[in-house]
Design a protein around this nucleic acid. Sequence first.
DNA 1: TTGTATATAGGTACATATACCTATAAAATT
DNA 2: AATTTTATAGGTATATGTACCTATATACAA
Lengths: 215, 215
Amino acid sequence: MEKINILLVDDHRIMLDGIESMLQNSPYNIVGLCGNGEEAWAWINANEDKVSIVITDISMPIMNGIELCKKIKTTYHHINVLMLSMYNSAAAVDEVLQAEADGFILKNASKVEFINALHKIQNGGTFFSQEIIPFLYKQIIAERKKEIELGILTQREKEILEMIALEFTSDEIASKLFISKKTVDNHRTNMLQKTHCKSTIGLVKFAIRNGIVSS
Amino acid sequence: MEKINILLVDDHRIMLDGIESMLQNSPYNIVGLCGNGEEAWAWINANEDKVSIVITDISMPIMNGIELCKKIKTTYHHINVLMLSMYNSAAAVDEVLQAEADGFILKNASKVEFINALHKIQNGGTFFSQEIIPFLYKQIIAERKKEIELGILTQREKEILEMIALEFTSDEIASKLFISKKTVDNHRTNMLQKTHCKSTIGLVKFAIRNGIVSS
DNA sequence: TTGTATATAGGTACATATACCTATAAAATT
DNA sequence: AATTTTATAGGTATATGTACCTATATACAA
C-alpha cells in the first residue's frame, strides 16, 4: 500500500520529532520538514506533486501557518492542510476558517485523534478537534452579536461614527462630508438612542468594540 | 552508571513524547509523566526521593509550571526544576526567575541544548537559553514604554480617567470623589496636555489602550 | 532648602455636544 | 400604493467640556 506523503511545518524541533514518532507505523510518510511558512512555501513550489497533506503550526516566525495555508489554497487545490495550534482561541479558530484549512487540531491531541484527522482530510473531508467546537460555537454567537450590534447603524452613521472616534468634531465632520453640522448632530443623537449610550464616549467604545476603529 | 531521575510535566502529549524520545540514550531516566502542576505536585509528595529534576511546561491547566516550581522550591530544596516554554516572553522569563527555577529553555531547543541544560542543572548550576536574551531585551524596552505611557499620569488622574471612560461627567465624578467639578476639569486639562489628545475621546482611547478600562 | 509635582479650587470665555422640537425629499419596504 | 427608514437641515435651550488665567497646601526631590 502506497503511503500518503506529508510535509511537516513547525518551528519547534520537539514538535516535529513528536509528530514524526507518532506517524511511525502509520500509512503516512513524512517527505519534508520545514521550520516556517516561507521555507515550506518554497519547498512546496519545488515539490508540488510530492505532497498530499501539509501539517502546519499556526504561530511561526517569518511566515505563519495561516498565510501559508492561504497561499497553498489559492495555488495548489489538491494539497490538503491540517492546522496545528497550541491554544484554542476564538481568534485562531476564526483565522483557520478564513484560511480555508481542511482541519484544525490542538497540539495536545492524542495519537488516535491525530491519525483520525489525517484520515478524514486525506479522504476529502474535514476534521476539527472536539475541544474546538464549543469555542467555535461561542465565536459564531459573538460574530452574530457583532453583526447585530453593527447592524443597528446605517452606513452613513457608521461613517460618521468612525470620524467621531477619530476625534473629529461635528463641525469638522460636516465640512469633510459637505453636509450641515446639524445633520451630523442629528446622526449623533440617533446613534446615542440606538446604542443606548449616554454620550460620545459610549459611542467611541461601541466603535472600538465593533472594529470600526482601533483604540 | 546510575541514571538521573526525571519527572516530566506537560499537558501536551506530543511534547511528552518528543522529550521522552530525546532523552533516549542519555543518562536521564524518566520516572513519571504528569499533565498539570497539581498532578505533578501530588506525584512529588508521594515520591520525593525518586526524582532529581522536574522538567515542566509553564502554561498548563489547573496549576501552571510557575506555581508548581514555587511549591517545589519552598518544600523540596534538593529537587531541581527546568522550565519549558513555547514562547520567549519577558513576562515568562520574569516569572521563571521569581519562581527560582534552575533553568529555562524554549521548546524549540535542540537535543544538544536540552541535554546541556539538564547536565548543568544536575550539577547545581543554572541554564537559560541564549535565544531568550535578545527577546527579553526588546520586551523590557516595550514594557518600559508602556509604563512610561501610563506613568505620565498620576494615580488620581488615572482614577478620574477611568471614571471618564465609564461615561461619568465631570459633575458626577466630582460628587463621587467629594471634590469640586473644577478640580476634575483641571485634571482633564492636565491629562489632555500630557497625552497630547485633542479631546475626551482621545483620553478614552488612551485608557482602553492602556488597560484602564475595556471597550 | 528651594524648587517641582500634585491635588485642590475658583473665574471667565468659548467650544462642543445633547435634548427637545419641526420639516422635506429620496429610498426602501410592506 | 401606502408606510417606514434614511439623510438632510433648521430652531432653541441647556449641558458639558476646554482654554486660558490665578491660587494654596502638601509632599517629594534636587
